[in-house]
C-alpha cells in the first residue's frame, strides 16, 4: 500500500510517498500513524503525531477510527492554507 504525504511532511520525509507491504495494512488510521511513526524516525513521528495533521482516504478527510484496506489511496497532510 502507498501512503502519500504533502507539504511539510513531504519535506521531512524527503519523498512524496511511503510504500508499505500490503500485508502490513493496519486496521485503521490511528494504527497506521503508529506504524509510520515507528518506521520513519523521530522528526517524522513527531510531525505525524500532531492532531492537526489530516488523513485522507480515497481523497476524503477521515478520522483516526476510519478503517483501512490496501487498495485505498491514503494521504497525510498539514492544515490547508490555500486561497
Amino acid at each position: 500500500m502507498k501512503v502519500l504525504v504533502f507539504a511539510q511532511l513531504r519535506e521531512l520525509l524527503g519523498s512524496n510517498s511511503i510504500e508499505l507491504p500490503d500485508g502490513d495494512c493496519p486496521a485503521n488510521v490511528a494504527a497506521l500513524r503508529l506504524l509510520l511513526a515507528e518506521r520513519l524516525g523521530d522528526a517524522f513521528a513527531e510531525a505525524l503525531a500532531d492532531p492537526n495533521v489530516f488523513c485522507a482516504v480515497d481523497q476524503r478527510v477521515v478520522d483516526d477510527e476510519h478503517g483501512l484496506s490496501p487498495t485505498q489511496e491514503i494521504a497525510f497532510f498539514p492544515p490547508m492554507t490555500g486561497g
Binding site: A7, N52, P78, M80, T81, G82, G83
Partner: peptide, 25 residues
C-alpha cells in the same frame, strides 16, 4: 470553505531568500 478545506499549501520566500511554510490562521 476553500481556504480551510481544499488541500493546498503555501510557502513564502522572505526578503533574505528563505522559504517558510505558512501556518493555518
Amino acid at each position: 470553505y476553500l481556504k480551510v478545506s481544499a488541500p493546498l499549501w503555501k510557502r513564502e520566500r522572505d526578503q533574505a531568500g528563505q522559504w517558510h511554510w505558512v501556518e493555518a490562521r
